[in-house]
């Protein structure tokens, strides 16, 4: 084997990917050629440096939590949609759960506030919309298509904002069920992140409030007699920027 042949095989040799015969031939060549041996040594040194040089980037814990939690609610949903026997089992289980809860509520003062419940509901709706390919009922980036679609499906007319120029394109709208009533779900995007906005009429007046739950960021507020909840895996700063823009475009 000459130097040129060895140089072609040297990476395979370093990586332990050569067959035994070629392996031996390369080693044979190193014994007689200090130049190729130097290249080999520097390859090996480079490998050691790459492997010990703290170049490995591990997943941030927040990302791990987010990925992990995004499959938990889906698990409940998926199993509910399983075989008929399973559905019976699920029904039985939820009955059992209801009775346990009733019993618990009867014995203990309620520990879960209405807010906590809403946060959980909104989060579950958000996750469900991502997991089951049912992000939108009407897919359109045109608010003049999305807004009329809700007519006759809801007892109120949701205002739909166009934020494409600000980098939050509208994806569409969806009917959802939160807080014991049918609500409007509006879907926007920021890069790869989905933002769900839920709104329904309410008399309450709440200051704009950023929250976090299961690795998601949420913002809730009231405006023009509507309660709004925005939720996304987007970072908190950008979500609040989005909410600000939405508030500015919504008639007061």
């Amino acid at each position: 084997m000459n130097c040129q042949e060895v140089r072609i095989l040297i990476d395979g040799y370093v990586d332990g990917e050569l067959d035994p015969i070629r392996n031996q031939e390369v080693e044979q060549h190193f014994r007689t050629c200090p130049v190729c041996l130097t290249v080999y040594n520097s390859h090996r040194a480079l490998r050691t440096a790459l492997r010990t040089g703290s170049l490995y980037r591990t997943a941030p814990p927040a990302l791990r939590n987010r990925v992990q939690s995004s499959f938990k609610p889906a698990s409940t949903w998926k199993s509910l949609m399983g075989s008929p026997q399973w559905r019976w089992a699920a029904a039985a289980a939820s009955l059992a759960l209801v009775s346990v809860l009733t019993w618990r509520v009867a014995l203990l003062p309620p520990t879960q506030t209405a807010d906590d419940r809403l946060i959980q509901e909104v989060t579950a709706s958000h996750v469900r919309s991502l997991m089951v390919s049912h992000l939108v009922d009407i897919q359109s980036s045109d608010r003049h298509m999305v807004k009329p679609w809700f007519t006759g499906k809801l007892d109120f007319a949701p205002s739909v904002a166009d934020l494409i120029e600000q980098g939050f394109p509208l994806v569409g709208g969806r009917l959802d069920y939160v807080n014991g009533r049918a609500v409007a779900g509006l879907v926007y995007k920021r890069r790869e992140h989905v933002i769900n906005v839920f709104l329904w009429p309410s008399a309450a007046a709440v200051e704009t409030r950023p929250l976090a739950h299961q690795g998601y960021h949420l913002v809730c507020w009231t405006q023009s007699g509507m309660t709004y909840w925005a939720i996304s895996d987007l970072n908190s700063r950008e979500l609040q920027e989005f909410v600000q823009l939405l508030q500015n475009q919504t008639p007061r």
């Binding site: 990302l63 987010r66 990925v67 499959f71 997991m131 890069r191 790869e192 992140h193």
Partner: peptide, 12 residues
């Protein structure tokens, strides 16, 4: 982070 999340969704 965006890529990994997107990829996990696709994988799922």
């Amino acid at each position: 982070e965006d890529m990994v999340q997107e990829a996990c969704l696709r994988a799922f």
